[in-house]
């Protein structure tokens, strides 16, 4: 036996040939039926507990025991009743996986049909399907309110504070959400400086220009807005220009002003459409 069989790939352990299980005579029906019966009883207990409103730990433990009982029974069946492997000559499979023969004429006609149909579908989609509205719900004069409808005075936002605001009457609408920030330092160009009130109160759209997530985190250390989805970072002092991460377009700014009553209002719409920039250039 010292001369080992020349296998195709030395260094790997070949699969051992198997025959019928030598334990076929050891099969004990009572053992199998006993465990299956125990599993059945366990299943009834599980049902009773289930409809009795037992907790997840109790149900899980009983379910685990039932599954283990079934396991023990089936293991005995598999081990003792294994009839072993059988070997058969492989059938002729040379006809499989050959590409279907098509005539060139059919290929040309089919290709043209697909191209024309696809172009028509794309044209229809582009021409007749709705597009997102160009602006947002903001307009000159709309008051900035919090989610519960409270108007804001400049004094309501402390140093380093961030409040999510909406135009009055549109509370909670996703695309109109805006972050109102109190910066520590004065904003610099290219910020729209006319849209800043109380020297350091500034507002940007809350939707990331990268993939549309809520840019909900403000880092006071470098006065940066940070998106939790893909780590796009925007410089809040300089018109929210992207400084790191995957975004390439600044966040739209909301020009702010003060109403005669003293609360903060918008003096126009956002400087661009909120949300991701998209793959089509607007003409």
């Amino acid at each position: 036996m010292s001369g080992s069989l020349p296998t195709e790939s030395p260094g790997r352990r070949p699969t051992e040939p198997t025959g019928p299980s030598p334990r076929r005579e050891d099969f004990r029906p009572l053992w199998v039926y006993g465990w299956l019966g125990a599993a059945g009883v366990g299943l009834i207990v599980l049902m009773v507990l289930w409809f009795g409103g037992a907790g997840v730990e109790v149900l899980g433990t009983v379910g685990l025991l039932v599954a283990l009982a079934v396991c023990v029974a089936l293991h005995h069946v598999v081990v003792t009743q294994d009839a072993g492997e059988r070997a058969f000559a492989r059938p002729d499979t040379s006809g499989f996986d050959v590409p279907v023969l098509v005539k060139r004429r059919h290929l040309v006609v089919g290709g043209i049909a697909v191209v024309v149909g696809g172009l028509l579908a794309l044209f229809g989609l582009q021409r007749f399907a709705p597009r997102p509205p160009p602006g947002s719900d903001w307009s000159a004069g709309s008051a900035l309110v919090t989610i519960d409808g409270t108007r804001l005075q400049p004094g309501d936002v402390p140093l380093g504070g961030v409040v999510t605001v909406w135009p009055e009457g549109f509370e909670g609408t996703e695309r109109a959400a805006v972050m109102l920030l109190r910066l520590r330092d004065l904003p610099e160009p290219p910020t729209l400086l006319d849209g800043v009130v109380d020297e350091t109160l500034i507002a940007y759209s809350r939707l990331c220009t990268h993939a549309g997530c809520a840019v909900a985190l403000y880092r006071d250390v470098d006065q940066a807005l940070f998106c939790p989805c893909h780590q796009a970072t925007f410089d809040a002092r300089r018109a929210a220009t992207p400084t790191a991460g995957p975004a390439s377009t600044p966040l739209p700014q909301l020009p702010l002003g003060l109403a005669p009553e003293g609360h903060i209002i918008a003096t126009g719409d956002l400087t661009a459409r909120p949300g991701p920039v998209g793959g089509t250039v607007d003409v």
Partner: peptide
């Protein structure tokens, strides 16, 4: 909500028909 917006942004990024597809 963020997952949904990201999938929408991926659709928007397709040229010419992305925004229409995303809106649909």
């Amino acid at each position: 909500g963020s997952s949904l917006r990201i999938a929408e942004a991926v659709m928007y990024s397709l040229p010419f028909v992305g925004e229409q597809l995303g809106t649909l």
